[in-house]
Write a protein that binds this DNA or RNA. Structure first.
Length: 419
RNA sequence: GCGUCGGUGGCGGAGUGGUCAAUCGCAACAGACUGUAAAUCUGUCGCCCUCUGGGCUCCGAAGGUUCGAAUCCUUCCCGACGCA
């Protein structure tokens, strides 16, 4: 058994639910925000800080750990969790996102989320985006190349060539040893044409099948340990494999993908790809209406407050996002009223906490003026204190969403937050 | 006192007759960031305006040479170093 998922309560007249995922390394109370720790570290934070701010899970990245320190070392170190001294559940992304970020998006201003709303503007906007913001400053090595069998990448560190196939990604993820791993997929740009999305989707589906087969093959080689707890549930689980749904912003492709991936023997599902900002909830809804209800769903790389509310409502159980940590390191602090840039002049002599009433370590002990000082002085503690605040903010917001579902007041809670 | 070198926008520092409102770095002022090539990137940064353009002032000060000066000359002021 790879994991146990129990739905505790559903949002009336919606797809959303609150539940519990059981893994070998503890429970994930869903909906839950998964903290991103790409290289087996959540930048600027110790695992103890993560735990005390309320995080339950960490997601690391296959691609990055493959390059450094290498899967063998992580395996020898006891797997990602033990290696980084994080005792809770762990996830690894398959490297599929790097197909996008080092491929189509490479050296360009294409991001996972496009801001446009009117679809008519899409094509012209896409052309602008694809030209790239940097213009002349070309990347120092060629972008990733995709073929039906896999992807050829360049190491951003030394330019050396490497290749991932679905089998290789799964093999690495087995060595990394996270509780939940993902099928190797192709994350496409939201600006890609329908024809390309369709072609990429066929590839992602073929790769899903191959990922699953490789996962099963590798599992057969492992010793079976069955230890049951008081309720008869296993207390040691094998790694869970989540299949990834793609399809860009097209309803027929998303639905086709949900049917195809949903019918495969995965332990749960990831919803991937890039979106148009306003379409996220709709696209997630198309997919989750089709995916088997009893299995957990992870929305990959989504983490803005309004996106989380709509994703939860549309039936997403977990999500991860670099935004809270990356933005923290860049001085953008999250508050209920929106984001503040702590580097702005107005905070230099503001001795109030980042957010009044916030119970995080940073807000309980430090002022905006102090954080402004640390950021201006480029002191490393700035990254730590800011990351603690942003992660506390988002992790606990999602916990409150969960509680609201359990208390049957999700919509009320959502309306109090999202205008 | 004499001599040498030097005084450029908040700071450092290019430029040494026209393409200079003046390279660049820092600081400053804003913005961006959604499965992390990210403690990163972008824009603004003399003043004013009807601001994908136009006007004004400007390179220690004053005067001069020149069609044209931050760049050449004169005097003065200031600084560093050397000699007395």
């Amino acid at each position: 058994m790879a994991l146990n998922f129990k739905i505790e309560k559903k949002i009336p007249n919606a797809l959303g639910r609150a539940g519990v995922i059981k893994t070998s390394h503890g429970e994930i109370h869903t909906p839950a925000f998964t903290v991103v720790g790409t290289k087996a570290t959540v930048k600027a934070l110790t695992p103890e800080m993560l735990k005390s701010l309320g995080a339950e899970t960490v997601l690391a990245n296959t691609y990055h750990l493959y390059f450094e320190p290498g899967e063998k070392i992580v395996k020898a170190g006891g797997g990602v969790g033990k290696f980084m001294n994080w005792h809770g559940p762990t996830l690894t992304d398959s490297g599929g996102f790097q197909v996008f970020s080092l491929g189509e998006a490479f050296g360009k201003s294409v991001s996972k989320i496009a801001k446009l709303t009117p679809r008519s503007d899409l094509e012209s906007e896409a052309r602008t985006l694809l030209k790239g913001a940097q213009g002349e400053s070309l990347p120092s090595f060629p972008p990733a190349k995709i073929d039906n069998n896999g992807v050829t990448f360049r190491s951003p560190r030394d330019g050396s060539e490497h290749r991932f196939t679905p089998e290789r990604s799964i093999e690495i993820q087995h060595n990394l040893g996270a509780d939940i791993i993902f099928a190797f997929d192709e994350c496409t740009a939201s600006t890609a044409s329908y024809d390309y999305q369709k072609e990429a989707l066929e590839r992602t589906h073929a790769w899903a099948k191959r990922s699953l087969e490789e996962h099963k093959r590798l599992n057969l080689k492992k010793p079976r340990v069955v230890i049951k707890d008081a309720q008869g549930l296993p207390s040691v689980f094998s790694q869970a494999l989540f299949g990834i749904v793609q399809g860009g912003r097209y309803q027929d492709l998303r639905e086709l993908s949900a049917k195809t991936i949903g019918a495969m023997d995965f332990d749960g599902f990831g919803i991937g790809g890039s979106f148009i900002k306003k379409d996220i909830d709709m696209a997630v809804g198309w997919v989750n209406k089709i995916l088997p209800e009893e299995k957990p769903r992870h929305l990959l790389g989504i983490g803005a407050v309004e996106d989380i509310f709509s994703a939860v409502e549309m039936g997403v159980d977990t999500f991860d996002c670099v935004a809270p940590t990356r933005e923290a390191r860049n001085g953008a602090l999250w508050t209920k009223a929106g984001r503040i840039n702590i580097l702005n002049n107005q905070f230099r002599e503001d001795f109030a906490p980042v957010e009044k009433g916030c119970a995080c370590y940073t807000c309980l002990n430090f002022s905006r003026a102090y954080l402004a000082h640390l950021f201006r002085a480029k002191e490393i503690l700035a990254n730590t204190l800011a990351s603690i605040h942003n992660l506390y903010f988002i992790v606990n917001l999602v916990k409150n969403i969960r509680q609201a579902i359990l208390d049957n007041r999700f919509t009320e809670f959502k309306n109090s937050y999202v205008k």
